[in-house]
Amino acid sequence: MFKKLLLGLLLIALAAGAVVYFVLSGGLNKQIKNAVETYGPRVTQTDVTLEDVNLSILSGSGTLKGLNVGNPEGYQSEHIFALGQIDLKIDTSTILDQTIIIDHILIKAPAISYEKSLSSSNVKDLMNNIEAFTGPSSGPSPDPEPSTGAKKQVVIKELLIEDGTVYVGALGVGRTVTLPRIEMNNIGEGGSMTMAEVMDLVLTKLLQSIGPAIADAGDLLKEGGKAALDAASKQATQQLDDAANEAVNKVGESLKGLLGN
């Protein structure tokens, strides 16, 4: 569940950044900020804010600062997901090519919160909010739309995730622990990976570091909350079920339409 939720949340930031190469407008940065802060809350039914956007078409460089996705009501943490800053540099000579080269992506200070209540969790409640926006995931699948051509491929030369933290809480007891620094190089090189596939690979790596951090947090909590936290930790690393996965996919498709993709 955690993996697909993070993918959905990061799409709000990264899709906004990608649009810079398809919209030629002097007020682009303001438009991206407004789109995230207008569309995000509709999807999550929580506060979504983006502090600052600074993207340049000419240089291929960009920075997004202070992306915050609020927690559903009833939980201790202010945000379920907060991102200090994303710095990226794209090889502008590849923008019109089938494979886009991203020289580097630096994700600074991602902060993740996972909290368990007696009957639910903040992750589950947020996914319910997303499904309420996208509609029920059950029922027959719509007919596939005609293909408009091959999907763009992506190569990321360098990706760094640093200064990350994860807060794990249960029944009012919680602890924040530091995530290890993650470095990945030449993602997608020599193969054919879409942005969605690249992000799935990156998030798998991120979750490999979150699991031990959650376990360490359990050892540091008071004995009274440890049993509840252990149960929360197991749920945090489970794969999203088909219904929730379809809800996140719907969000991604809606974002594409909103951003003119």
Rank of each mutant, 00 (worst) to 15 (best):
F22E: 15
F22L: 08
V23P: 06
V23N: 08
L24N: 12
G26T: 03
G27I: 10
G27E: 13
L28R: 04
N29M: 05
K30S: 14
K30T: 15
Q31V: 05
Q31I: 03
I32Y: 01
I32Q: 04
K33F: 01
K33T: 05
K33H: 05
N34H: 09
V36R: 07
V36F: 04
V36A: 12
E37P: 12
T38I: 02
Y39S: 09
Y39N: 11
Y39A: 13
G40H: 09
G40A: 05
R42Y: 07
R42P: 05
V43Q: 12
T44I: 08
T46V: 03
T46M: 06
D47H: 01
D47Y: 00
D47T: 08
V48E: 03
T49E: 08
V53F: 04
V53I: 12
N54Y: 00
L55S: 03
L55H: 00
S56H: 08
S56R: 07
L58K: 12
S59D: 02
S59K: 03
G60P: 03
G60C: 00
S61Y: 00
S61W: 01
T63P: 02
K65H: 02
G66Y: 08
G66A: 10
L67N: 02
L67D: 05
N68M: 11
N71R: 05
N71F: 12
E73W: 09
G74C: 05
Q76E: 15
Q76N: 10
S77D: 14
S77Y: 13
S77M: 15
E78K: 14
I80R: 10
I80L: 15
A82R: 13
A82L: 09
G84P: 14
Q85C: 11
Q85K: 15
I86P: 04
D87K: 06
L88Q: 01
I90H: 05
I90C: 04
D91L: 06
D91G: 06
T92Q: 11
T92W: 07
T94R: 11
